[in-house]
Design a protein around this nucleic acid. Structure first.
Length: 600
RNA sequence: GGUUCCGUAGCUCAGCUGGAUAGAGCAACAGCCUUCUAAGCUGUAGGUCGAAGGUUCGAAUCCUUCCGGAAUCACCA
């Protein structure tokens, strides 16, 4: 597909170029494009785009009104795309000609890649690490936010022309999984997912909870027997069992390793189902059991190079006091690694394996400090890619009663939530009864699309860095600013297109009404929106745009008939406009990982 | 206590690289289906943008201080 730069060059850029020329001709001044402010004209004024002329007043040496008037006259005379202008205070409102809009629509029509930059084979690699679950418990609402963000950001970067590599670093080792293992050994009676019919991750999660209950009981008993709290916590038999198991794991004890593999296997089977349902996937999965030793050599070399410090007890530290931070431990006195060390190692490995332009970590904001330090440590070690790490930090999902606590079972389970969403979608769909002649299978697929669409949109429309509230009692809406609203707009358009039958592919020249122009303006903005979403690492930019587009289309749809109009050209034009909107919706929702149904 | 982030309508959120009278949705109230899907559209009501200073022709937006909330500051991950 041709990307014809002059053809497709954003109208805003052309205006800027014209203003730069105008400044030269009218005022013999050279100005920077960045000094020019162009914005959408507010609804209450006439025009499409507005130039804020205040910054130009100084070089024009006349009042804002005069400056705007001079510039407006110049623009109208020299740019075909400008159909007229008006000046209100220091604002120059420019009207964009219908022919420009029509020409844009024609260029875009039928372009299944509109708004998307195809990554070339040598496009830079953007690595996105997300999900990164622990293997001791099922996924919950917090993980859903992580996965949806990671998946969507990956798609957005692909659409922005990058080669994206999605990776998952599974935390499959450590004391947490040993806790589930010891509890299973003690109380499991050989239960397996096959024997009890329980999903693997749920089964293992149940034993993690069981461990905690048992542990608390033992601590209480020990305290009742006269031990102080700390002592009791240290000596609870079940905790000692877990610790012993961890040591055996590290010593490659065959029996422990076998149990570990078995139970992790159950968890992965469960996770795979949840991932598949959420619609997320990975190009590569790393396991901490295979990577946790990475980084140690790099740290030891850092000691040799005198950029890191070794204390008398043998522990290794990065001194960050000159960066207004503390000292950070990298190797314990027994020589073992901490999380930070491993992250240094995995990053180093990845940067050696791929020509990475940017490495995005989708991790909650509780680890802001960790990633701040990570990049500093890497810089200390002398790697120039320390500034290519981007922590996509997102806020917590809070329940009305506060933070979720998985050990206490106070969580919104990912599978349960998806079930509920789909069930609600089914209930609503059945009440509306629009799917009468569909098979059960087709219907179920649509319920799934709508339910998950509602959930995904609900989460992705919020700015990632903000904490968000989820109230399980007030189920997620299907009306208003929601995923189903946008899906509905799409389904409606497809319904119209089905009725339209075959139509001419050439878009006729017609005059445009206000609602049509509103819609075209938004379609025109789509590529810029994708770019902004990528720059900001922010899917909510796409989500909010999708809503604006759907809303504008619905207004147009309400006010004007598409198929039942006298004028054949108008009818044809509206069919094309509708088709373009449907395809932008499909693509934009795709960037959010949301499917769109053909009927609903 | 140090650092970082957040505070916009009753609720959930946009707007934040400074620009015109601060926008949506939900909830409330009032309308619109003999015409392409009413999961839609229209209207009413709802705000000292946490507070106070400052910079500016202009501040929800930038700076400072304060108030409120969150996260973090482990030889945990």
């Amino acid at each position: 597909m041709l990307t014809n730069k002059t053809e497709m060059q954003r109208i805003e850029e052309r205006l800027k170029d014209a203003i730069i020329r105008a400044a030269k001709e009218l005022w013999q001044a050279t100005i920077e494009g960045s000094a020019i402010q162009i914005q959408k004209t507010r609804r209450e004024f006439d025009g499409d785009l507005t130039v804020v002329v205040f910054p130009l007043v100084r070089i024009a040496k006349c009042s804002p009104e005069e400056t705007a008037a001079l510039l407006g006259a110049y623009m109208e005379k020299n740019l075909d795309e400008i159909s007229g202008y008006n000046v209100i205070k220091g604002f120059l409102n420019l009207g964009i000609s219908a022919s420009y809009w029509l020409q844009h629509i024609s260029a875009v029509s039928g372009d299944a890649q509109y708004g998307i930059v195809q990554p070339g084979p040598d496009a830079p690699v953007v690595m996105v690490e997300y999900s990164s679950p622990n293997t001791n418990k099922p996924l919950h609402l917090g993980h859903i936010r992580n996965n949806l963000l990671g998946n969507s950001v990956s798609r957005i970067f692909e659409a922005a022309g990058k080669n994206v590599v999605k990776v998952n670093l599974v935390n499959d080792r450590g004391i947490h999984i040993c806790k589930s293992m010891i509890a299973w050994q003690l109380f499991g009676n050989g239960e397996t997912p096959a024997s009890s019919g329980k999903k693997g991750d749920k089964l293992v999660g149940d034993y993690y909870v069981r461990f905690d209950q048992e542990y608390k009981k033992q601590v209480e008993a020990l305290m009742a027997a006269g031990k102080d709290k700390k002592e009791a916590e240290e000596s609870a038999p079940i905790m000692l069992g877990a610790r012993e198991m961890l040591l055996k794991w590290e010593a490659d004890d065959p029996e422990v390793r076998k149990l570990w593999e078995t139970m992790n296997g159950w968890v992965y089977e469960g996770f795979d189902k949840t991932y598949a349902r959420m619609g997320v996937s990975f190009d590569k999965i790393y396991y901490e059991s295979e990577t946790y030793k990475l980084g140690r050599q790099l740290v030891l070399k850092g000691v040799d190079d005198k950029v890191l410090e070794k204390d008398a007890d043998g522990s290794v530290w990065a001194d960050l006091t000159d960066r207004k931070l503390d000292r950070k431990l990298l190797l314990r006195s027994d020589g073992t690694s901490v999380y930070m060390t491993q992250d240094v190692g995995t990053a180093h490995q990845r940067f050696s394996e791929y020509p990475i332009e940017e490495h995005i970590y989708v991790v909650g904001n509780e680890q802001n400090y960790h990633f701040q330090v990570l990049s500093m440590v890497i810089e200390k070690l002398g790697f120039d890619w320390h500034d290519k790490l981007y922590h996509l930090s997102y806020g917590m999902v809070e329940l009305p009663e506060g933070k979720m606590k998985s050990r206490e079972g106070k969580v919104v389970d990912a599978d349960d939530l998806m079930d509920e969403m789909v069930a609600t979608a089914k209930q609503m769909s059945d009440e509306l009864g629009k799917l009468g002649d569909y098979s059960e299978e087709e219907k179920n697929n649509i319920y799934r699309q709508i339910g998950l669409g509602a959930l995904k949109y609900f989460i992705l429309k919020v700015d990632p860095k903000k904490n968000m509230l989820f109230d399980p009692k007030e189920s997620i809406d299907f009306n208003g600013n929601t995923g189903p609203f946008i899906q509905y707009t799409y389904a409606r358009i497809l319904s119209v297109l089905r009725s339209a039958g075959a139509y001419d592919q050439v878009i006729p020249a017609v005059s445009l009404n206000e609602k049509e122009t509103d819609v075209i303006r938004l379609v025109h903005a789509f590529p810029e929106i994708v770019k902004t979403a990528a720059e900001e690492h922010n899917p909510s930019v796409i989500a909010n745009f999708m809503y604006d587009l759907a809303k504008a289309f619905n207004q147009f749809y309400h006010d004007h008939s598409i198929l039942n109009v006298e004028d054949a050209d108008t009818r044809l034009f509206r069919i094309h406009l509708s088709a373009i909107v449907s395809s932008v919706i499909e693509r934009g929702m795709g960037l959010l990982g949301i499917e769109v149904p053909e009927r609903m």
